[in-house]
Design a protein around this nucleic acid. Structure first.
Lengths: 240, 240
DNA sequence: CGGGATCCCAAGCGATACTG
DNA sequence: CAGTATCGCTTGGGATCCCG
């Protein structure tokens, strides 16, 4: 169908087909947000402040035509992933993990949305490490975004909290009795250093719960990063 | 650096950063080809017939500035991945796997390059299944592309063969004595059906080697696909 | 001859204004 | 609130041309 179209890549290949569906600008960011849960048009726009409204509209239509997204019947302006769309989670997680190697520091007008934070935690989650630790609910505040990450054995559930965020079924086990809770706040770059293993858990102010819950967090959520070449070789490496 | 640039996404997020580096059109296809091995400019252009030469040139420069690609010192026009670039393999494999759910049939002018075939096999490889099978060298001919896939326990090595393909170190173990060889040819869509588990290994003509080597191949290389929704709901789903 | 750079046109993107 | 319409600008596509 989209085989020989002018915008196709003219190649019979899985990646080429995938990029024909989700390779356009903003598409994977919209899909990432929908991976966190169903969202309304205005939610998506709020989570992606710089997306032009016509582009959001175009992408949602294209993703529906491609069978990755469908409308939520009852909610006006509501969208959710189809099973095919949900299968993109490994792609999004892989991109998220790789991106941490080139994250740098937040720019002036750059913020972290609830959804970005939620998917970052999902991509950093280490089931093996978590299985050896007691069940814990981590409540994180990063910039203006807050999420609750409930870890029970090798299972993680992340729920955005706060005034925004579409109503969503609360985590399956509201409080497993034995579930400890730790709450703390970090700057975005501090979260990066903690998850990348470049900073220690000490120095993170704990708002509530066990003080070494942050160390447990750092063992549970970890992304292995690679240092980019330090602009030594060829190329001028845009220093600005 | 590329934080608040006009083309950035204005979000502090791993995926956003990743897409700022490799989200432009053609970039991930170039990277896929370089994941197979070092390539010269003309190799890349031959493997991606529809890429305009200026775009290939632009992408290679951008990828160098981003530290994902560097020039091969000796070879004129040679390019290879940096360690950071090689870390994109999980992304490419995840996209490749997902793409098989929407592969469809090859369009009129669509071909499969050596590199596309090689990465398809890498993405479909099942180390667990392979470990239980005897070491085997599969020689595949799909369309005009040919590769040798050497499987030894849970380890796979894929090497493009034929008149093209940059000289590359031959697979580590040229012939492990006990390594069986199977050679067969398929149409692109037949490979898709075989790897997706929609076709049986019977009916594939074996050119050389054990006749049920194809069945072994089908157990070793497998991609789980999801059926796209059948254009029943909303959207017109481009039928052409 | 292989490895790119330049040109022009079409299509996609971004910002804003506007409508059901 | 959930989009559509419009317009100027940026990118990509295709052919050609230049350089070592």
């Amino acid at each position: 169908m989209a085989a020989r179209s002018p915008r196709g890549f003219g190649q019979y290949s899985g990646i080429a087909r995938a990029l024909e569906r989700v390779g356009e600008r903003w598409a994977l960011l919209v899909l990432r947000d929908l991976l966190v849960g169903p969202r309304r048009y205005s939610d998506l726009k709020a989570a992606l402040p710089r997306i032009p409204t016509n582009i959001l509209s175009d992408r949602l239509r294209e993703l529906q035509e491609a069978g990755l997204v469908r409308r939520v019947p009852i909610v006006r302006g509501g969208y959710e992933l189809t099973p095919l769309g949900r299968e993109l989670e490994p792609v999004v997680l892989a991109l998220e993990r790789w991106g941490w190697s080139v994250l740098g520091d937040p720019g002036d007008a750059e913020a972290m949305s609830h959804e970005a934070l939620a998917m970052a935690l999902r991509s950093a989650f280490r089931p093996d490490a978590a299985a050896a630790l007691p069940p814990t609910e981590y409540v994180l505040h990063v910039g203006r975004a807050s999420v609750a990450a409930v870890v029970d054995g090798p299972v993680l559930e992340v729920v955005p909290i706060g005034p925004d965020a579409v109503p969503q079924p609360r985590p399956t086990t509201p409080a497993d009795a034995a579930t400890a809770t730790v709450e703390f706040a970090l700057a975005p770059s501090a979260l990066r250093d903690l998850v990348a293993g470049r900073a220690d858990a000490a120095g993170v102010p704990v708002l509530a719960g066990d003080a070494d819950g942050v160390a447990r967090f750092a063992r549970t959520f970890r992304i292995e990063t690679v240092d980019p070449p330090s602009a030594g070789a060829a190329g001028d490496a845009a220093v600005a």
